[in-house]
Nucleic acid binder design. Structure first.
Length: 439
DNA sequence: GATCCACAGGAAATTAAGGGTC
DNA sequence: GACCCTTAATTTCCTGTGGATC
């Protein structure tokens, strides 16, 4: 009997696909909602397109353009505009001269050390002979790249776009790579190199070595955040390409734009919400995207993001998140770093039998959690008796944390664990009469 | 005003792992 | 196989700091 029931309840993939094919298809071009899609029009970026075009145009006359530093918050169209102008320059150059400039696009979020950036340039110029991820002295690969540029790029220009340049690991690597690239033209015989740096951090330039800053920032272009009406126009323009007529109303687009504008004016976020809303409507077999789908999409994106983030953390960081959760749960207060470290140490030793990381490292991990939006924190001083410490607050609900740890092999058993020191007297989280350091 | 706590956080060093060269 | 190179993660060392308390 059970077998029959199981059989009835089991998922029939063939039926599912048949049913799916019967649902209305309201997409014309699904890829148009992807953040990597480069549309034919980029609304509200005329000034920036004009500025980059004016600077890079001299490449068409065999001159070397100034290096460009582009900055602005996430989702303000920086990468899209650079790629758009790149496409146009290539078209024009091919039309007139029958050849086109080289474009090497590197995302420093993934490729974030001096060696890796130079090796990546090498591999784009000579994909048949890729360099290994480590092991070759830097000066050797720089010489290889110089030879390749003169051989492959020859009498043309090579634009090297360093996207998310602020994500290069440390200050010395940032200064080093910019110094090497800015001097590269002095070593080249026929080819020329132009650098376009893109940063999400507005004051990135302030952290650079003055020599690196002056060579990178010969021209600077700011990308302001989009307003709600601007976001709406962007969404409308993409919707025309992505959807068939009548799939989405003006009001629904306005809501989606208003949500993204209210958060941080991020066009990428607005497109993600729209894409997710479209997927929800599609799975329900509907032929229209409604405002309810936009709200559902926003909530689902937020929940999934947090859950995936915590689930994919390494064991040490999971123990840290759990330590903060347990302290908040059992004290209803904002724990300080000292207590967090004590709870974390106890968990990592009891739960996994591992040696705890040092307090210095935990300070960095707390900051990383803060950057991801899981927690917020502030440094507060409590005077001579209780010193200066970082106070931490959870930015997500306790339920979201429980959900994320639910199926965790190790940590699901510790969701109700009370750190032993909380059972002792005279331990106050902060602002209490007595404070006692625990490590 | 000086003192002191409990760190914060920068910089350099260390360790382990992966890879190349001779 | 010895040696050299790189990366990433972490540790060690150090100076600086806010503000209640002395």
């Amino acid at each position: 009997m059970n077998n029959i029931n199981n059989e009835k309840n089991s998922f029939n993939i063939d039926e599912f696909f048949d049913d799916y094919l019967k649902t209305p298809n309201f997409f014309k071009n699904r890829a148009a909602l992807d953040s990597a899609f480069i549309p034919k029009e980029l609304p509200h970026r005329n000034d920036q397109i004009k500025a980059i075009a004016q600077i890079t145009a001299c490449a068409l006359k065999d001159a070397n353009p100034s290096n460009i530093f582009i900055y602005g918050k996430c989702g303000t169209g920086k990468t899209a505009v650079v790629k758009y102008v790149g496409q146009k320059i290539n078209q024009k150059s091919k039309e007139v001269f029958g050849k086109q400039p080289f474009w090497i696009y590197i995302n420093c979020n993934n490729i974030s050390t001096t060696y890796r950036i130079i090796a990546n340039i090498h591999n784009k110029l000579d994909p048949k002979n890729p360099l290994p991820p480590t092991g070759v002295p830097l000066d050797i690969i720089i010489n290889k790249v110089l030879n390749l540029l003169d051989d492959v790029v020859k009498d043309s220009i090579c634009f090297i776009v360093l996207d998310e340049i602020d994500r290069i690991k440390d200050k010395s690597s940032r200064d080093n790579i910019l110094y090497i690239l800015s001097r590269i033209n002095e070593e080249l015989h026929s080819a020329r190199v132009n650098i376009i740096g893109i940063s999400n951090v507005l004051n990135f330039k302030d952290d650079l070595d003055p020599r690196a800053a002056s060579s990178l920032c010969e021209e600077e272009i700011l990308f302001p955040v989009y307003t709600a009406p601007e976001l709406k126009e962007i969404l409308a323009s993409r919707s025309k390409v992505a959807f068939k007529d009548g799939v989405i109303s003006e009001e629904t687009l306005s809501l989606c734009a208003a949500i993204a504008a209210g958060e941080n004016g991020d066009a990428r976020r607005a497109l993600s919400i729209l894409r997710k809303a479209a997927e929800i409507a599609e799975r329900r077999g509907l032929d229209k995207i409604t405002q309810q789908h936009i709200y559902l999409a926003r909530d689902k994106l937020d929940k999934d993001k947090v859950k995936d983030f915590i689930r994919n953390l390494p064991a040490q960081q999971k123990a840290l998140v759990l330590a903060i959760y347990l302290l908040v749960k059992y004290t209803s207060s904002r724990p300080n770093k000292g207590l967090i470290y004590s709870a974390y140490s106890e968990l990592i030793q009891i739960g996994m039998g591992l040696k705890p990381l040092t307090t210095r490292r935990i300070s960095d991990l707390i900051k990383e959690l803060e950057l991801s939006g899981i927690i917020s924190s502030e440094v507060k001083s409590f005077g001579r008796a209780r010193g200066r410490t970082r106070i931490v607050d959870l930015e997500i609900s306790e339920k979201q944390i429980r959900d994320a740890f639910e199926n965790d092999l190790y940590w699901s058993n510790y969701l109700n664990y009370k750190p032993s020191f909380l059972k002792r007297a005279n331990i106050n989280i902060y602002g209490g009469v007595k404070y006692k350091s625990l490590f």
